[in-house]
């Protein structure tokens, strides 16, 4: 197994409170790293540090060469980052939203592929409706539809609370999708309060009560 990430001595404080200190962990290819911890433990912050959006976390990060040229910051084409803010523009249709997300990866997919992904997350018939008129759960699905696109360059998913606002069936579907991605060699880092049971899952507990 290749080691994709080595994180050493991560330290984070927010509003004069130390969230985590001396945090070391590594990430292997094909693994699902489930970051767990109580609310406000710094899970989102940690994820933002991993993608390179946050500078409040101190410490060293070393990504594998296949994901990052310089080691420190991820290259844009190799991962999906599903953030707390879903990156769904309300004035645009699900189709446009998804196509734009692909464009930001500097790639171009046939529109059938995008239709297909929207169909898989249950948005058939809503492709051309402005996302603003969809329900919260449906908007979440627009964001999640990215994970159902067939893009071989994507080797890593960073998912921040992906199960929020989903119904039971959608949760199960997403679980299966995550597991399938890991089995095909993909790597996942996710934060969630929802438990996952799969052989590839490894848990990382941060901010545990002392």
């Amino acid at each position: 197994m290749t080691e994709l990430l080595r994180a050493e001595n991560l330290y984070c404080e927010r509003d004069e409170r130390v969230l985590f200190n001396h945090l070391d962990f590594s990430l292997q290819a094909g693994e699902i790293l489930h970051v767990k911890g109580p609310n406000g433990a710094g899970k989102t912050t940690l994820l933002r540090r991993l993608v390179g959006l946050s500078w409040v976390v101190e410490g060293q990060l070393k990504w594998h060469d296949s994901l990052s040229e310089q080691g420190e910051k991820l290259d844009g084409h190799g991962f999906w980052y599903l953030a707390h803010r879903p990156a769904v523009t309300l004035q645009q249709t699900p189709l446009e939203n998804l196509a734009f997300a692909v464009a930001l990866h500097n790639q171009n997919l046939p529109s059938e592929a995008i239709w297909q992904a929207l169909d898989t997350v249950g948005l058939r018939g809503y492709e051309d409706v402005p996302a603003g008129s969809l329900s919260a759960g449906q908007q979440r699905r627009v964001s999640l539809a990215r994970l159902y696109l067939d893009m071989p360059s994507i080797k890593l998913w960073l998912l921040d609370e992906p199960f929020t606002a989903l119904d039971v069936n959608a949760v199960r579907q997403l679980e299966r999708r995550i597991e399938a991605f890991a089995e095909s060699g993909g790597t996942v880092v996710m934060t969630s309060h929802h438990g996952l049971t799969h052989t590839a899952v490894r848990e990382l507990l941060i901010g545990a009560p002392l």
Binding site: V51, G52, L53, L74, D75, G76, H77, Y81, A83, H84, R85, P86, A87, V88, T89, L90, F100, A101, A103, L104, H105, N106
Partner: peptide
């Protein structure tokens, strides 16, 4: 502002297209 609020802006900063051009 709109892009910041809905999270598109973060994605643009992470994009493999140089964010300066975006």
């Amino acid at each position: 502002r709109h892009d910041y609020e809905d999270g598109s802006l973060e994605q643009m900063l992470l994009s493999s297209v140089p964010p300066q051009l975006l």
